[in-house]
Design a protein around this nucleic acid. Sequence first.
DNA 1: CGACATCCTGAAGCTTTTCTGAAATGCGAG
DNA 2: CTCGCATTTCAGAAAAGCTTCAGGATGTCG
Lengths: 223, 223
Amino acid sequence: MNVLIAEDEKRLANAIAEILKEHKYQVDVVYNGNDALAYTEAEDYDVFVCDVMLPGVNGFDIVKEMRRRGDNTPTIMLTARTSLSDKVTGLDAGADDYMTKPFQPAELLARLRALTRRQGEVIIDELSCGDLTLNLSTYDLSCADKTVRLSYKEFEVLQLLMQNAGRTIPKETLIVRIWGIESDAGDNNVEAYISFLRKKLKYVQSTVQIATQRKVGYRLEIS
Amino acid sequence: MNVLIAEDEKRLANAIAEILKEHKYQVDVVYNGNDALAYTEAEDYDVFVCDVMLPGVNGFDIVKEMRRRGDNTPTIMLTARTSLSDKVTGLDAGADDYMTKPFQPAELLARLRALTRRQGEVIIDELSCGDLTLNLSTYDLSCADKTVRLSYKEFEVLQLLMQNAGRTIPKETLIVRIWGIESDAGDNNVEAYISFLRKKLKYVQSTVQIATQRKVGYRLEIS
DNA sequence: CGACATCCTGAAGCTTTTCTGAAATGCGAG
DNA sequence: CTCGCATTTCAGAAAAGCTTCAGGATGTCG
């Protein structure tokens, strides 16, 4: 389950992100309207949680634009205001649900479940690939009877590779998804983490390998 | 025992919540009818305490709607009026009991007990996990033959961890659940309490540990 | 009321872990 | 063979977490 959160109050945004991650959602966060547009275009999210008042493009216009280009991602609008007219505007713009701040985490979760119910997903807390198992809750990587703990960044890189096993992920994508779109991380950062991960893969004696696609990126190979 | 309170006078709502919490109920509070509907749908409460006059959807309609969708959660209606007709309306709508404001806390507690009695549920006052036992009425934490008394906040933190033993609880969640969503408590507050708790866990010589999930939160590990 | 105890909080200093950027080395395609 | 990536390592920087402490708030008891 991929969720995109667009909320400019960073504290709140991160709080929501944490709560959703705890419930096994894969979460991306953006803090302004322009990034929100870019992200919704680039990725295929299962739910989009969007604040109305955003720097750059506002929430209404984001949803309108998404619908215009045929993107029907279920969307929940957040707003500090409680006026009926906002609600109407939001729903007219194409939002599927509407919440006023502040709200309890349980409510957001309930609404997310409601919006995604039809998709009938199973919440998993492990990711497997070949003989590897990655525990999404403890960041433990295991294979047969060996286990290592991954650091946060190592975890994110490997998770992305495992989710797309066999497919080559460009370095650029890794940088954007893990270091963030605004970061100034370079290719070498990625390369360093690939190196760390290979060391750990060797340690757990996995048959799964990280293959290099020269001038492009990396891919997980189950051999 | 989960209780949902729907009451728009925040002062009163919070007072009731505090009283119930003292008596070991798990309490959620909403301040309007729409939230009440959303919450009763999302969660499975053991009792629902509902004011008649609520912004949004009124109490009668909430209960009617709940019954319509097959939700038979025992419900106590609150109202400032004393007229018989209100009482009838409430009970007709599907409420199980009825109280007029103002009332004494003891009365509410008595009625709650009455309503939940038939369910034959036992109100537990201990929480166990590994070799640890947490007494929910005295806040005593014990293991083998050693015992320490926890402070209120220590208790809340540990309780949350024990209820979710093995799962990682994000710091943000701890802050929101224990310090409140509007609080300005920082990560360090949580860290301090984790530190206090670890000291006490060591003192009672438990095998249970609080593990750190870097950049995320904490989790109880039974080793 | 004053003395005493407890608890909460925020700050400060310290420890540990993780991340980063640079440098040295390796290796494949042309 | 050579150039341009890729790999690996490592030390220092940065981040995150841990612990302790003092001040203030609150509560209790004589």
